[in-house]
Design a protein around this nucleic acid. Structure first.
Length: 417
DNA sequence: CGGTGCGCACCTG
DNA sequence: CAGGTGCGCACCG
């Protein structure tokens, strides 16, 4: 209930601010939501972070300050260009998510957001990067995110390293800080990851399609993923295994991504740094704390945590599949693991999955229709094409490339069992 | 004082 | 050139 409300409110507010030519920053968003709906700023911040993780809202560092974007709008633009490149987008998302998990953990919302935003916006407004020179410093710190993106083998290392850290230290600040020390953990973990990544290597293999886009997406995804991982031990395992495997193993067709890493890596760094840096270091700390506190409490007693965890796994699997191209055998294997969780996916998980897969607008429709993992498994082609009131193009892609694949893998698993 | 409208400059593709 | 973004200012209640 509240979630959807806040989503509407926040997206509405962002749109409103944008139409007014005012920067949609945290302060203005919170204020407007409070005025319009009487919601407390803290709560708004928390909900905003959730949306960011879901990629419903993009956090961007633009011209040295943090801005929030309506992911749906942003993506449209970028995607328009890409257009047919769904596959590429999907790959990116998958790749990114897998790799990023590490990064985002520390920063949590901020880092993640920025990343996400960047990804989405990357096409349209890389201005942020340009403008945000000063921020770059911060970005370096947060770079973790950017670095992770690196596709292949490298991030494996990074992810592996980071993963453990995250789990131990704590969950990512934003969404689900399970351990009491959300904020601290974040700060600590992030740096560690970053350091390791930086020192070791930069993982930068970008996918063939678009370097920037890839990078951006990756970041965003990472953030989203990270939070989840820490929570469930079991999940984490899966995730860890999956991610590394996916990335490293991806021997077959997918390999193409690796080649481009080098050239693109530069770009990634530059772009990444600008966006991520500022937000994470400066503004976010406060937000995070708030969120963490609230969530922590909630988490301890509530099922939220489980949701988050679930999300991570699903993503990784899905992502892996996407990245690989959806056809790889490996993918199927990964998917299988995922499938187990599929039945446990919540509505939020499903929405997050499709947001991460590059369908933020359509993800809203899934949420609106309250499609959870079980419902997803029951969905037929006609349901997707006509039951969600989404455009035919994305609907077809979503069904053929995601739902169908998820269902297939799930039922295959069942058969085996 | 806070919300709103918008001209204008700046960026990117 | 087109389109997005947001600063800074003026206006309104």
């Amino acid at each position: 209930m509240s979630e959807s409300k806040y989503r509407e409110w926040i997206l509405d507010t962002i749109d409103s601010l944008r139409s007014r030519k005012a920067r949609p920053d945290l302060e203005r968003i919170c204020r407007m939501v409070r005025r319009r709906h009487g919601s407390e700023p803290d709560r708004t911040c928390a909900e905003l972070e959730k949306l960011i993780q879901e990629q419903t809202v993009l956090k961007v560092n633009y011209k040295g300050s943090i801005s929030y974007r309506n992911a749906a709008k942003v993506q449209r633009r970028s995607r328009k260009k890409d257009d047919v490149s769904l596959a590429s987008a999907a790959r990116r998302s998958a790749m990114e998510e897998a790799s990023h998990s590490d990064l985002s953990n520390g920063d949590s919302a901020l880092g993640a957001v920025d990343q996400d935003e960047e990804d989405l916006e990357g096409d349209t407004s890389m201005a942020m990067d340009t403008d945000s020179n000063p921020d770059e410093e911060g970005a370096e710190e947060s770079h973790d995110g950017p670095v992770r993106p690196s596709p292949s083998p490298t991030h494996e290392d990074a992810s592996l390293q980071c993963a453990p850290i995250r789990a131990v230290s704590a969950p990512c600040s934003p969404s689900a800080p399970q351990p009491g020390s959300g904020p601290i953990c974040n700060s600590v973990s992030a740096p560690d990851c970053a350091a390791t990544q930086k020192a070791g290597e930069r993982p930068n293999s970008l996918p063939p399609s678009s370097p920037r886009a890839l990078t951006h997406n990756e970041w965003a995804y990472d953030s989203a993923v990270c939070p989840v991982e820490p929570q469930h031990p079991g999940m984490q395992r899966d995730k860890v295994e999956l991610n590394p495997v996916d990335l490293s193993e991806t021997p077959s067709p997918c390999v193409s991504t690796n080649g481009k890493k080098d050239s693109e890596s530069r770009e990634e760094e530059s772009s990444l740094s600008s966006d991520q840096l500022v937000p994470d270091s400066a503004a976010q700390p406060e937000e995070v704390r708030k969120d963490s506190d609230g969530r922590l409490q909630a988490v301890s007693s509530s099922p939220d945590n489980s949701t988050l965890k679930k999300i991570d796994t699903p993503y990784s699997a899905a992502e892996g599949a996407l990245l690989n191209g959806g056809t790889c055998d490996q993918v199927s294997v990964k998917v299988e693991k995922i499938n187990q969780n599929l039945l446990q996916w919540t509505v939020a998980d499903v929405a997050s999955y499709f947001s991460a897969a590059g369908f933020p607008e359509q993800a809203v429709a899934f949420r609106t229709q309250e499609i959870d993992g079980k419902s997803l498994l029951l969905m037929q082609r006609s349901d997707v094409l006509t039951g969600l009131s989404i455009r035919l193009g994305p609907a077809l892609k979503i069904y053929e490339r995601h739902i169908k694949v998820l269902q297939r893998t799930h039922f295959l698993e069942c058969d085996d069992i």
